[in-house]
Write a protein that binds this DNA or RNA. Structure first.
Ligand SMILES: NC(=O)c1ccc[n+]([C@@H]2O[C@H](COP(=O)([O-])OP(=O)(O)OC[C@H]3O[C@@H](n4cnc5c(N)ncnc54)[C@H](O)[C@@H]3O)[C@@H](O)[C@H]2O)c1
Ligand SMILES: NC(=O)c1ccc[n+]([C@@H]2O[C@H](COP(=O)([O-])OP(=O)(O)OC[C@H]3O[C@@H](n4cnc5c(N)ncnc54)[C@H](O)[C@@H]3O)[C@@H](O)[C@H]2O)c1
Lengths: 243, 243
DNA sequence: ATGCATTCGTGCGCGCGTTCACAAAGCGCG
DNA sequence: CGCGCTTTGTGAACGCGCGCACGAATGCAT
């Protein structure tokens, strides 16, 4: 079996789903489920079964026809592909409201992303302890990133400080950034940025709410007008897993 | 001019970008910039200019050839399309770490999403005040949602409580949910759900970091191997706006 | 008034991602 | 040992969204 000849690129959309599969597989493993079909996994993940199979096929042929996927083995393969064979320490920039919640959240280290450091520009914040981590001054960022081998930075500053924070992270050697500030960061192309914009998410929901209310008393369609009571027509996800 | 005949559906990808445009347009308005070209807006939003024009064209023809878009007018149109002509009160379920940060965050009311209520199942949490809002017991959810005309709910409970929280929200009459728990919520198709999964975001970054490290010493490509120092080759976003 | 520069609006081709559908492959039972 | 049942892996069709490229419209200078 050739274990290490695979250097195909995985579609972005698939990469974005792998963490979802991984989490579900982890839960199955905890429940001592030994194998799972693409159908079962699709149900639990709320996606199409063919998509699951195609997604997983990018990693290799790790299923068994007529049976399904061995959970433990698949967990290993997905983790390997995502680069989760070792921890990725992260540094949080901005010890405000959000930085506090993030640092205090155990889920990160649990999933392989220990908060190795928190920095802030405000001398008032420096010296306090968030989630067991001492807040240090942002001027020490480079030293911290270098010595702790940090590749991933989290921007949790105010909007006005975000670009500065990003530039400092890049200068310190960070190559991936998760940005919570409602700002489009300008960084070298070689740096990967992902953003989480809560206000934008709410506005997207607002769009659909608005649209719904237009449809309700407007002209066009149709049935399902003012069904506010609970309609239990689940489209997805009744639990199922073959043992 | 026909103002209200437009019932075309806007592509999901476009809807997701409108909030970004809106934020930038708001900043331009604050800076008293009166008009902006698709090129300028594209720069600031970090996207292609044609995309900006196409996105905006779904709202109608609100630009002026040879000139650009009048900022104030465009703000109005985007807000109208997103349903932001009135506030959308939200209820937060889960008064933990995250619920605390969310409730204490002024940015939401500022953008039209006032935190009208916070509820929790834990009697210990009930009665405390988060961001000026009294935490109430989740059993009061229906009454709260009805009386305050709430359509949008935020799930900020532990993973184990998320499905229960979602079901209670739906039963109370909420039709849009923003979910922070790492769980695939099962709700009626008529309910719109968006999720924010921080661990997944980090894992996606991990994938690209991992890939990068493989490329660096592996076989394939190429230049840009271990360029850790800052390369100032910004692909995007030098400020520009025509006045 | 005419021409020139600018910028919008959009038709069109292309590439990516989703989904269907089916052949290949393994399992278990008789 | 073969047959039928199950489920994977993937070829192929489809649809959506992206971005180029260009015509149309507008403003401004002369
Ligand atoms: N709190 C939330 O729940 C929430 C929700 C959505 C979005 N956000 C966004 O997350 C960001 C942080 O929110 P918050 O509530 O924590 O804000 P905050 O004001 O409480 O904290 C910001 C922190 O960043 C620090 N800071 C500012 N500029 C800096 C810089 N250049 N370098 C280093 N540190 C710097 C400040 O000293 C402060 O401690 C904001 O952009 C906000 O829009 C927060
Ligand atoms: N804190 C963070 O920065 C952070 C980051 C990423 C993701 N998350 C996710 O957000 C969620 C909340 O995180 P947290 O740190 O606030 O957790 P937490 O444990 O501090 O708070 C959870 C709260 O939800 C309440 N709760 C539980 N079940 C409930 C139910 N059925 N109905 C109503 N309330 C219920 C609990 O009483 C508790 O107060 C978790 O799923 C976590 O994975 C949090």
């Amino acid at each position: 079996m050739p274990s290490e000849r695979t250097r195909r690129r995985i579609p972005e959309a698939t990469v974005a789903r792998l963490p979802v599969y991984l989490r579900i597989l982890g839960e199955l493993a905890d429940d001592e489920v030994e194998s799972i079909s693409s159908d079962g996994l699709a149900d639990l993940a709320g996606v199409n079964a063919a998509k699951v199979r195609k997604d997983l096929s990018f990693l290799g042929s790790y299923g068994t026809r007529g049976v399904g996927y061995v959970v433990a083995y698949l967990v290993y393969q997905v983790r390997r592909e995502l680069g989760l064979t070792h921890d990725w320490p992260v540094v949080i920039v901005g010890a405000g409201n959000l930085g506090h919640a993030l640092a205090g959240h155990g889920g990160f280290s649990q999933r392989g992303f220990p908060v190795a450091a928190v920095v802030d520009v405000d001398p008032e914040k420096v010296g306090s302890v968030l989630g067991g981590v001492l807040v240090r001054h942002i001027d020490e960022l480079s030293e911290i990133v270098q010595s702790k081998q940090i590749n991933i930075g989290v921007v949790a500053t105010s909007a006005s400080g975000a670009q500065d924070a990003a530039e400092r992270l890049v200068r310190a050697g960070v190559t991936s950034i998760l940005n919570f500030a409602p700002v489009v960061l300008s960084v070298p192309r070689s740096v990967e940025v992902r953003k989480v914009d809560l206000a934008a998410e709410l506005q997207i929901l607002s769009y659909y709410e608005h649209r719904r209310s237009l449809a309700a008393h407007g002209q066009g369609s149709s049935h399902s007008a003012t069904v506010v009571g609970l309609a239990t027509d689940n489209g997805v996800a009744r639990r199922s897993a073959n043992a």
